[in-house]
Design a protein around this nucleic acid. Structure first.
Length: 593
DNA sequence: CCCGGAAGAG
DNA sequence: CTCTTCCGGG
């Protein structure tokens, strides 16, 4: 049953883990969807298909049933489930692929960047896969993305790396059902992180895991914690660069760059640079801006300059009432200390990272600050790259800045993962709202092959059959026409906006954008929400062909995925689904449009 | 089918 | 807050 190829499939680990739900740690729908998506048992019901991040619910009823089982809501049905999915639109976790029934698209960028800034969003151009990228850090060996230029540049047929698979496999152990909690998902990595935050992280509670600030180092330290992995400065550098480029290619928010002030964006042609010195990483020291982000594009140099055009996200239309309150309130009765692990034991997960230590063998060099436990409180270890540098603090600075922005923005518009609110700095105002945006549709594949690709395996179905459907009407939203418009209002927004509260500023910008968008291209949405004009920003870079990456039907590679599903949840609720995940209880209709 | 508002549960 | 339920409207 099932082709080997499809089984494996890599998925976004990051996606799975820390979803930390704010209020309740119940599993979240998107999370659940992701889970289903990664298991071949459910490929008959739901699977990646089409563009990056796109998936189709082949059997809505079944999915609903599963979801209902998971949530113990027997009354669940697709209608309701879809409503829930619709709520994700505003959060931008998900989008609807117009024109295709039961087809939605994940917005991983948001997740990724927020949670794991280091993840490469590699989507190789050639890979239409919908399967999302995976954090390289997750790999057992934590291998860096292809460092060779060639690799990087290559369009890549399929670059899945073994490592990746391993990672995927490792991650895969969670069961889909399990009423107890969705949290169970987090496991190894979290632990590392969790461990640290152990309690302090003011108020961090669960949420702490996601804290952006932490996230960086979390990623790094995690592997280290678990596996004693060490980094090699060079590798690190490469990795970072790759990531950066990746981000760049994707037009992700500069936010990402800011996180790594010392990184130089690799030139389009060759990222590599004299090994002798690490120009990029080495002298970090802060400086907030000085670091050169050489971008082919021109202005990327200084984030503040706003090389990117950012589009603001549309206001949350819906409702958002008070959101600020949470800042410190972390009531957590249990204070997080107790182990939330409910089903944790599920399977014996082998120690996640125990293996490879070899990789780092040499490197170490205090690259990463140790994850020592105590750092948590005020100082974060950050990634210290090389002794030489001293990124340490500066990062914070930068980050702080942006984060603040981000925070504001996010808060305002996006509730997602980053709830974290760091202490806000008084002077924050000066920051440009610039970043943020990346969300957008994000999914469009970058015109050029991104540098590093993590590898993702293709959608199962695709494997057997080429993604012909590509012809789809193409969402208008995705690839807007030229749209240079966005650039127009530079983020700077000079004129005295400074004093204006961020919110207002954003709003203003938003309106502007809207207007522009409208004029430029209005077809988009009937409603104002128009996909926030995402596309525009990109236009410049990728110009046209993004869609054309047609030829990409990579055969699904047969990764080792271990299919075991620990689905056993203790109880009954699960039984149902467990019974026949893939067993068709209903006739599969041909939903294909 | 898909979209969102409204109310409400946990 | 996230999601569940209902529901009127395209």
């Amino acid at each position: 049953m099932k082709t080997p190829g499809e089984t494996g499939f890599a998925f976004p680990d990051w996606a799975y883990k820390p979803e930390s739900s704010p209020g309740s740690r119940q599993i979240q729908l998107w999370h659940f969807i992701l889970e289903l998506l990664r298991k071949e048992e459910y490929h008959d019901v739901i699977a990646w298909q089409g563009d990056y991040g796109e998936f189709v619910i082949k059997d809505p009823d079944e999915v609903a049933r599963l979801w209902g089982a998971r949530k113990c809501k027997p009354q669940m049905n697709y209608d309701k489930l879809s409503r829930a999915l619709r709520y994700y639109y505003n959060k931008r976790i998900l989008h609807k692929t117009k024109g295709k029934r039961f087809t939605y698209k994940f917005n991983f960028n948001k997740l990724v960047l927020v949670n794991y800034p280091f993840i490469d969003m590699g989507v190789s151009s050639g890979v239409p896969q919908s399967a999302p990228p995976v954090p390289s850090g997750a790999g057992t060996h934590f291998r860096f993305p292809p460092s060779t230029p060639s690799d990087v540049l290559s369009p890549s047929e399929d670059l899945r790396s073994p490592v990746f698979s391993a990672a995927a496999g490792r991650m895969a152990r969670n069961s889909i059902s399990d009423c107890s909690d969705g949290t169970s998902v987090n496991s190894e990595m979290e632990e590392g992180a969790a461990d640290e935050r152990g309690g302090d992280r003011g108020g961090g509670g669960f949420r702490g895991l996601l804290h952006p600030r932490l996230s960086h180092d979390s990623l790094f330290r995690i592997p280290m914690l678990g596996s004693h992995f060490s980094f090699n400065p060079e590798e690190m550098k490469r990795y970072l660069q790759a990531h950066t480029q990746s981000v760049y290619n994707y037009h992700l928010s500069p936010r990402a760059f800011l996180h790594y002030p010392n990184i130089i964006i690799p030139q389009p042609q060759r990222p590599d640079k004299g090994p002798a010195h690490h120009p990029a990483l080495s002298h970090g020291h802060g400086h907030a801006h000085p670091h050169p982000l050489h971008s082919p594009l021109h202005a990327a140099d200084d984030p503040h300059l706003s090389p990117f055009k950012f589009k603001l996200q549309p206001p949350p239309l819906g409702r958002k009432q008070q959101r600020e309150g949470q800042t410190q309130g972390r009531p957590g009765p249990s204070s997080a200390g107790s182990a939330p692990s409910t089903c944790s034991s599920t399977s014996g997960l082998r120690s996640p990272f125990s293996f490879g230590s070899d990789l780092g063998s040499a490197g170490v060099s205090g690259l990463v600050s140790n994850c020592s436990s105590h750092n948590s409180a005020g100082s974060l270890p950050k990634i210290k790259v090389e002794p030489i540098s001293d990124i340490e603090s500066e990062e914070e600075v930068e980050v702080t800045d942006i984060s603040e922005d981000e925070a504001e923005l996010e808060d305002e518009f996006e509730p997602f993962p980053l709830h974290h609110r760091r202490e806000r700095r008084p002077n924050g105002v000066q920051l440009q709202p610039a970043d943020d945006d990346l969300d957008e549709d994000v999914f469009k594949t970058p015109a050029a092959p991104p540098p590093a690709l993590p590898l993702f395996l293709g959608p199962p179905a695709e494997a057997r059959r080429p993604p012909v459907l590509k012809s789809e009407p193409a969402e208008p939203g995705d690839a807007p026409p030229g749209a240079s418009t966005a650039a127009g209002p530079a983020p700077a927004t000079p004129g005295g906006t400074k004093c204006i509260p961020l919110k207002l500023r954003f709003k203003r910008r938003w309106s502007e954008d809207q207007r522009m968008e409208a004029s430029a291209d209005e077809s988009d949405d009937k409603k104002v929400r128009a996909d926030e004009g995402e596309g525009e920003g990109v236009a410049e870079t990728n110009g046209e062909r993004e869609e054309s990456r047609a030829p990409a039907p990579p055969p699904a590679p047969p990764p080792p995925a271990q299919r075991r599903s620990g689905t056993s949840c203790s109880s009954s609720a699960v039984a149902e689904e467990g019974a026949g995940p893939n067993k068709e209880r209903r006739t599969p209709k041909t939903w294909l449009n």
